[in-house]
Design a protein around this nucleic acid. Structure first.
Lengths: 144, 144
DNA sequence: TTATAATTGAGAATAAGTCTCAATTACAAT
DNA sequence: ATTGTAATTGAGACTTATTCTCAATTATAA
């Protein structure tokens, strides 16, 4: 397995882009995120670290991290985009409670299997997929 | 099967809301949409029909149609929300070409099966789900 | 050390969607 | 039919995530 610490730097070098302190700081924060996050959250955490990186750079770097397959957008039917760190993680689906908003990550081989068949059937080359299932969690079902 | 023409009217009556000409006009346009659409598209089509319904009413009515399970949001990683008419349609997944944007709707029993298992495993009561698979269609694979 | 093309910060711009509120309207009760 | 009233509407202001612009700065190849 490649060293995760250098994956973004390598990606940038490979495409002739620069490895700047701003990009390093943003990548560091992203690597520290254990769950889903939004652009604003990165910005806030950078501020906590006394960094003065601008929002513009945060958004710009998010796009680069997406292009590098380090994060991917996960959309939860809200207005702003959520991301998740996918470095070294198994591809998974999301189960979301409509009432309390709790998010559970799960993996089901049947789903991967069905997707693989669909890609084959329509002659598509696979890139990525998202599965978002909504419902009511046990607690919220009781809470009439 | 219930008469689709009256489903929205019944829904509104049942909850003590009014059946207005504006809501009827918007529902008519929605019923005429064969594929995915955005709020703006409804607004534009209403204008073509010489209707002067405001954007506010379009957005408000979209929410009601969602609550009535007549349309549902389908999110394609873009900034604005897309909807699809689900009246009398089988639940399906989307396969999207990253290059040309082509969207294919498909159904795979393995996916329904995997989702059902996930809902059961985590004790969730099912509401809805979305599956969005992205890749490159046959044509775009060739077009290096 | 220097040249230069890429990157940055600051803040203006954009645009989808929401909110406000006075005027209008559907419809239940008379 | 008429009326009372709560719901709905249109118009446009507002919000807010994200993008854009551009002059100043900086990483890096030469």
């Amino acid at each position: 397995m490649e060293d995760n610490k250098d994956i973004f730097k390598s990606f940038l070098k490979k495409r002739g882009s620069k490895w700047t302190p701003e990009r390093k700081a943003i990548f560091d924060v992203v690597r520290s995120m254990r769950f889903h996050f939004e652009a604003d959250e990165l910005f806030f955490r950078l501020r906590q670290r006394k960094s003065k990186i601008s929002k513009g750079s945060v958004y710009r770097t998010i796009k680069l991290l997406e292009a590098a397959d380090i994060i991917r957008p996960v959309i939860f039917t809200e207005r702003h985009t959520h991301y998740e760190n996918i470095l070294g993680r198994k591809h998974h689906s999301h189960l979301i409670c409509r009432k309390c908003g709790r998010i559970i990550e799960f993996f089901r081989p049947e789903i991967s299997d069905g997707l693989k068949k669909a890609y084959r059937e329509y002659g598509f080359k696979e890139i990525d997929h998202k599965v978002e299932a909504t419902g009511l969690c046990r607690k919220c079902q009781k809470k009439k």
